[in-house]
């Protein structure tokens, strides 16, 4: 993540990191999660589900910070984030 200045509490605050879970059979490929992810973590893949909708996937070069926007904006209850522990 790009920082414009070094925050004073950088050593204490850990940026949360999440992993994306997708329920394949529910997704309808509307691309809302991909468009509105503020960190551009998601991208459309070339893989289709049984109904022929293309599915989102994660662009490995960017990190999810668990803002939860994809989970909220998904009209299909098909995507959610779980936090990865730093240990």
């Amino acid at each position: 993540m790009k920082l414009w200045r070094k925050p004073l509490d950088q050593d204490r605050v850990m940026i949360p990191h999440g992993e994306v879970h997708i329920i394949i059979e529910r997704c309808k490929g509307c691309e809302l999660c991909v468009t509105y992810c503020p960190c551009d973590v998601l991208e459309m893949s070339r893989i289709f589900n049984a109904k022929g909708y293309s599915l989102p996937q994660v662009d490995g070069s960017k990190d999810c910070v668990i803002c939860g926007l994809c989970e909220m904006i998904c009209p299909e209850f098909a995507i959610y984030i779980e936090e990865v522990s730093h240990g």
């Binding site: 992993e19 994306v20 879970h21 997708i22 329920i23 394949i24 529910r26 893949s45 070339r46 893989i47 599915l55 989102p56 996937q57 994660v58 662009d59 490995g60 989970e71 209850f77 098909a78 959610y80």
Partner: peptide, 20 residues
């Protein structure tokens, strides 16, 4: 499905499923 979605975990349940 021959290919796999990259860096994504496949799931069957959503955290809100309790209410649905």
């Amino acid at each position: 499905m021959n290919e796999e979605l990259s860096n994504v975990l496949i799931s069957k349940e959503h955290p809100m499923d309790d209410y649905l």
